[in-house]
Design a protein around this nucleic acid. Structure first.
Length: 209
DNA sequence: GGCCAGGACACCA
DNA sequence: TGGTGTCATGGC
């Protein structure tokens, strides 16, 4: 067994199944993937709860909602102006995808403004059950911490995991969830430095000099 | 009161 | 290609 697979087993036995993605519908996964960008999940839950309470957690309802009302509903998850706009764009794409019946390609998701590689892969994996390994900030820290893989490119990390593991969707889903859980625990224990923290330290160094 | 979060994008050198 | 600023709320 390679190191990536061994670490997966270790995380799973230590933390247990994470039951990701927490959502009632496929569309909720899609919307959540966008709303959670650079945002704690707790805040995203509030935004989703607002949408549900207003009866807006459906593609057509989101499209039919005025942008300022949408902004108000998702305000708790931050970046609400751009996210409201981008949620409409992504929703339009989602409706088109469902209408034609075939799953989306990565490229067509990336064509949507506000959908980057992580969000696209989250949607492909968790909403459509396609084998794309999701790479986020925690994944990079996880790799650095365990000296699993070193690189700068998103797709480098993705290729590393996809070539190290069996091509199984449940495995990809669980592994990413476990890495996030690992990252949260590291943070609670004060054992990591975030990218932003490192950037800030560099800046402080510059100003001090 | 500051730091950080399950990013993406534009702009600049 | 790499670095930096911006977008914004809420928990700790």
């Amino acid at each position: 067994m390679n190191k990536a697979a061994a670490l997966y087993r270790k995380l799973l036995s230590e933390f247990g199944p994470q039951h990701w993605w927490p959502a009632d519908t496929q569309y909720e996964v899609v919307a959540g993937a966008l709303l959670t960008q650079n945002t704690g999940w707790g805040n995203v839950e509030k935004a989703i709860a607002n949408l549900k309470a207003a009866g807006k957690m459906s593609p057509q309802a989101v499209l039919d909602t005025q942008i300022n009302e949408l902004e108000t509903l998702i305000r708790p998850c931050g970046f609400f102006r751009q996210k409201a706009l981008r949620l409409k764009l992504l929703t339009k794409k989602f409706i088109g995808i469902k209408a034609r019946g075939s799953p989306p390609t990565r490229d067509e998701l990336l064509d949507v403004e506000g959908v980057g590689k992580e969000t696209a892969d989250s949607i492909l994996l968790y909403a459509f059950g396609l084998p794309y390994f999701v790479v986020d900030a925690y994944t990079r820290r996880f790799c650095a911490h365990h000296r699993l893989y070193e690189g700068k490119e998103y797709d480098g990390y993705r290729s590393f995991f996809e070539s190290s593991l069996p091509r199984e969707v449940p495995l990809y889903k669980e592994y990413h969830a476990l890495i996030v859980e690992w990252g949260k625990r590291q943070r609670r224990a004060g054992k990591n430095k975030t990218a932003r923290g490192i950037k800030r330290q560099r800046n402080e160094g510059k100003t001090k000099k």
